[in-house]
Design a protein around this nucleic acid. Sequence first.
DNA 1: GAATACTTGACATAAACAGTAGGCTATTTT
DNA 2: AAAATAGCCTACTGTTTATGTCAAGTATTC
Lengths: 156, 156
Amino acid sequence: MLRLSTKGQYGVRAMFEIARGYPDRPLTIREIAERQDVSVAYLEQILGQLRRAGLIRSIRGPGGGYLLAKKPGDIPIAAVLGVLEGPVALTSCIDPREGCVRVEHCVTHLLWKALGDQIEGFLSSITLGNLLAGDVGGVPQVKTAVKRTKKDHATQ
Amino acid sequence: MLRLSTKGQYGVRAMFEIARGYPDRPLTIREIAERQDVSVAYLEQILGQLRRAGLIRSIRGPGGGYLLAKKPGDIPIAAVLGVLEGPVALTSCIDPREGCVRVEHCVTHLLWKALGDQIEGFLSSITLGNLLAGDVGGVPQVKTAVKRTKKDHATQ
DNA sequence: GAATACTTGACATAAACAGTAGGCTATTTT
DNA sequence: AAAATAGCCTACTGTTTATGTCAAGTATTC
């Protein structure tokens, strides 16, 4: 369940490659494609989206390529995925572009909303900088996001 | 990004309806279908899977219908979705049924793994019982799951 | 002005999703 | 026993989305 599209995956991996060269060395599409084993043509599409969104910038002509538009630490994974796949919207019920016709009847609405926020929060908390440093998954398990009965106070 | 299939959504909603009748009143497919506005034929498939997985049990003949096989508090949402959609596997890289050919090269592997665990943990922490009680999303934002570098101390 | 590299949009294919259809079996009621 | 009720099972199909490919063009540098 909940599979991420390859587009999103490739996008993140491409950004990672570009980040490695930051700040001086522009990477050509060809280099990225080879290192991450993705077709050049497909990458063009992906990088195009990311560029238009302002996450990277391109330099044309010989010696050109792609560069990050900001510092790696300022680019959360959520931003990359947001550009390539739109907002986290587990159900059409939640999607801001559609809306829920039956919010008040929809018991599960809150559930999907909460999970979506959880995911969004997680992806926002991790930047390309973290990825470069290998700073991922430091906290294996997070406390439950359910408010249990009053007596159980969050220990953290 | 990360859309949940309707099958999973319907499944959870159906389980919720069944849970409302717990423990005495069996619900017919027809009732569930009407209340949750899903086709009977489609629901049959879904409930069949849930039944074979042991989450619900059925009673045939007049007066029959579906009942929860356990207490609502013992059925986490993760179990329902797991049956209907398989394990959380954001990437084929993570899917236990496929496996990753390039684990050590795959920088993002850890990232997807961590996110998957996060989601799994969340969905495991919420049961049908919580849903019945409206106990969802009590904690809107969870602390970041990334261990930041020492110099950048989290301001919040 | 030639080489390099990015830009754009149309198109092809395959897989997954979402749902339908139809017939069958079990149980209860009359 | 017959009829009515309710679940059980499998196959099929239309639609959408994902995943790319291809071809032709534009900008920049050497």
